[in-house]
Amino acid sequence: MLAIVIPICLALCSLAVLLTFIRLLIGPHQPDRILALDTININAIALIVLFGLWLDSNLFFEAALLIALMGFITTVVLAKFMTRGDIIE
């Protein structure tokens, strides 16, 4: 059963990334784009976890955790830069 369900889940998550990408392209403002990037990060985590299940490998956990860390830092830095025009004041 898992052999059928995991590809379905991968397809759903990929579709989610695609929809988010449309939002990233159409904007219309900078915060919308940053929010879309943040969402793509979170979707990517779900995709990587699912891919690890598909390959039956525990090694993808570190990648997912790193993307979570980097995604958070990226979002905060971009938002801060947009608000203040500077990152470290």
Binding site: M1, L2, V5, I6, I8, C9, L10, L12, C13, L15, A16, V17, L19, T20, I22, R23, H29, P31, D32, L35, A36, T39, I42, N43, A46, L50, L53
Partner: peptide, 25 residues
Amino acid sequence: ICLLLLVGSLFTLIGSIGLLRLPDF
């Protein structure tokens, strides 16, 4: 496990649909 994975993917998709559909930031 299948149910959890499906629910997870569905909610991920719904989040993205919301991002695309709703009218203001």
